[in-house]
Amino acid sequence: MESVQYHAPQSLEEAVPLLKQARQTPSRILAGGTDLLIQMRAGVKSPEMLIDIKKIPETTGFEIGADEIRLGAAVPSAVMDESPELHQQLPGVVEGMELIGSTQVQGRATPGGNLCNASPAGDGAPAMIASSGQCVVFGPNGVRTIPVEEVCTAPGRTSLADDEFIQEFRFPTPKAGQADAYLRFIPRNEMDIAVVGVAANITVDAGGICTAAKVTLGAVGPTVVIATEVAELLVGTKLDDATLEKAAEIASGLGSPISDKRGTAEFRHRIAGVLTRRVIKIAATRAGERL
């Protein structure tokens, strides 16, 4: 293996020729690097070119608008966690990101990187999908926008072309009575990879009736599972204990988890149910507080 080329374009324009080169040269986009550097060192990935997108202004900021929240793909999770506004608007998305690794890892890890690493157990994706995130994908021919759930296609694989990267995420700004939440299960209290992760985005009305819901499950299949059945069950209810029990039961049956060093398939099914119940409660409480 020869040495790697490293490029850090300062703008989207500067990235274009590099992306064109990436069509021929095995390349990787470098955001936080917390997965990529480990994979390179282990010989799992051997790119010949690295394109560091952290110097591109569009990838590194965030902005909360009345209708839309824009989140740069390379914003470190520690920066997200330090923003009271992001916590206020998208607490579940922030929770997903600030659960990744240690304080040190959070200083680097980014939502774009977490998503494009395409680990079935990635903590970032479930809440981004539950909160209807869209990805702005940049390539030599300009941008295209796709829903977050269309990025990961299989473990370690994405739908992005070799000459594309995610520039930013866009989320609809939550309405009154709407909030998200993310919970994961790990054996220790920190540092582990999710055995199961569940996100919920819940909208309630003044009467406490759930008017909209989206629930997503991580680490129970090759990609995030969107629990449509659970969401359908919740809408129209007061999210009472019996409904949540039923939601847990449905969630327990979803996905196709594997047995590995982090847990058995059976355990993952069980925990998916428990977390589904718990996370809906948290999201619903938050939603109620936003009325």
């Binding site: 209290n189 920190e190 982090r262």
Partner: peptide, 11 residues
């Protein structure tokens, strides 16, 4: 150390 799970400070 990710999956050989020794206690961390908040365990």
């Amino acid at each position: 150390f990710l999956d050989y799970r020794m206690p961390v400070a908040n365990d």
